[in-house]
Design a protein around this nucleic acid. Structure first.
Length: 299
DNA sequence: AATGGTCAAGTCAGC
DNA sequence: GCTGACTTGACCATT
């Protein structure tokens, strides 16, 4: 079991997702931003290793505007050596990597142009992970997309698009249940048709489900990951006390996390903490996991 | 140096 | 019809 956090380390004093305004685009600006971002990513990964955090989500902003038509910068060639070195470091440290493109990426949109831009963006994610020479366990997680008043049609559109994707992207892509549109059961239906692995988001599941218990879903979604995909990834969060249902907690709720660990015992999973204070909660989560004899040696 | 409006992109609920 | 939420703040024009 690995425990990780997404994109940002709040304490380290740098950010790996520095970007700029589209109208400020220049190749020089691009190169300098990416260069800074990669330096910060190296620092974060080194910090993670020191703190026994072996799961990390790289921000999609690491290469700003990578899939935008304005970007003619050959970032892959320019940063080839550094990307390989970072990937090598991460692999040697056994830090698992994931990415999560943001809400604009929708493969099942009825609008062809949206789908096409989404595929471009996903191909950038694939190119980045491939450039780091990461194995098949480094995944790109994506929600199924929009409903557009007809969930069945939306699901079958997703399947149709998925089947035509580049195999390099297909082998990276996993789908995640969201908190208002597509449940883990919907994802299982898509898995039946496509064999795509399902990243189970236990918090989204509590917000949006059709009566299944979380431990049942852990089991069913866990089976969708093949050997080459690695150990199933799971997203974990808990409810923010003041905000609306579905808002992520500011800090880990240790009792809730212990309860989750308890139901996860039969399943070997890697846990991504989607909690606002990032590495701080990840450290606490690791302490909690290590203090429980049922998890010793597993993280 | 501090501030706050705005930022590439989509969908949908809630007003 | 507009705004806010999403996984998440940061850029940068203006003062």
């Amino acid at each position: 079991m690995k425990i990780g956090y997404p994109c940002i380390n709040r304490g380290i004093g740098c950010t790996s997702g520095r970007t700029f305004r589209l109208k400020s685009y220049s190749e020089e600006r691009m190169i300098s931003s990416v260069s800074d971002n990669l330096m910060c990513l190296e620092r974060i990964l080194a910090w993670n290793l020191e703190h026994r955090i072996r799961f990390f989500r790289i921000t999609s902003d690491i290469i700003p505007f990578a899939s935008h038509p304005i970007c003619i910068c050959p970032w892959r060639e320019h940063f080839r050596d550094r990307l390989e070195e970072i990937g090598e470091f991460s692999s040697r440290a056994e830090i698992r990597i994931s990415m999560h493109p943001d809400q604009f990426i929708v493969l099942n949109s009825p609008d062809e142009k949206v789908v096409s831009r989404s595929i471009d963006e996903l191909m950038y994610h694939t190119a980045l992970l491939d450039s780091m020479n990461l194995d098949g366990t480094a995944k790109i997680q994506l929600h199924v997309g929009g409903v557009y008043g007809d969930a069945k049609a939306a699901i079958s559109r997703f399947i149709g698009v998925y089947e035509r994707l580049d195999p390099a992207l297909q082998s990276r892509l996993v789908i995640e249940n969201d908190d208002q549109r597509f449940t883990a059961s919907d994802c299982l239906e898509i898995h039946e048709e496509t064999t795509i692995p399902i990243l189970f988001d236990v918090f989204h599941h509590t917000c949006h489900n059709t009566g299944e218990r979380a431990d049942e879903m852990l089991k069913l979604t866990g089976k969708t990951w093949k050997k080459n995909d690695g150990i199933p990834m799971v997203d974990y969060s808990s409810q923010h006390q003041e905000k609306r249902l579905g808002s992520h907690a500011e800090h880990i709720d240790s009792d809730d996390f212990r309860r989750f660990l308890a139901i996860s015992i039969p399943h070997d999973i890697d846990i991504m903490l989607e909690i606002k204070d990032k590495e701080k909660s990840a450290l606490e989560a690791i302490t909690i996991a290590e203090s429980d004899p049922r998890f010793i040696g597993s993280s």
